[in-house]
Amino acid sequence: MQQVTLTLPMLPDMELTASKMACAMGEHIGLSPDKIDEVQMAVVEACINAFEHSSANDREVHICLKVLGSDEQPAGLEILIQDSGVGFSPDKLAPVPTEHPRAIPRKRGHGLRIIKGLMDEVDILSSAEGTTVVMRKMR
C-alpha cells in the first residue's frame, strides 16, 4: 500500500497544500479530473473545519493519504484528516436547505455536508481528544 503523510500548521491557505497533494495522488492512481476536483474540495473543507473549529492546542492538522487496492490495480484513495482538538458531534450538520425562496441556508457549518456530498464514503471519529475525518473516493 502506498501512502503519504504530512503535518500542516493551521495557517492561512495551508489547506491548499493538502489539496495539491491529494491532486497528485489522484493523478497517480488514475482518478478522473472531476473526481480529483471533488477530492480537492473535500480536503480543503476538512482542513478548514479543523482550522476553524478544533481549538487544537498544537495548531496542527495531520493528513494521511493512502492508495486503496494494490499497486498494480489501485481502487481509490483514502484520506485521513486528524486534529487533536476538542471534538464535536458529527450529527450536528447544518440544516438541509428548504424550498422557501427567502430561507437562505445558514452561513456556516456546511463543510461536512460538502464533504459527504463530494466523497463516496465518509466516517467521522470525534471525541474530547480530537477528530479524525476519514474519506474515500473510488476510481
Binding site: 491548499l16 474540495m41 473543507e45 478548514i48 452561513k107 456556516r108 460538502i114
Partner: peptide, 9 residues
Amino acid sequence: KIVNSIGIS
C-alpha cells in the same frame, strides 16, 4: 477551481 464554504457563505 476551488471555492471553500466560507467563500460560498
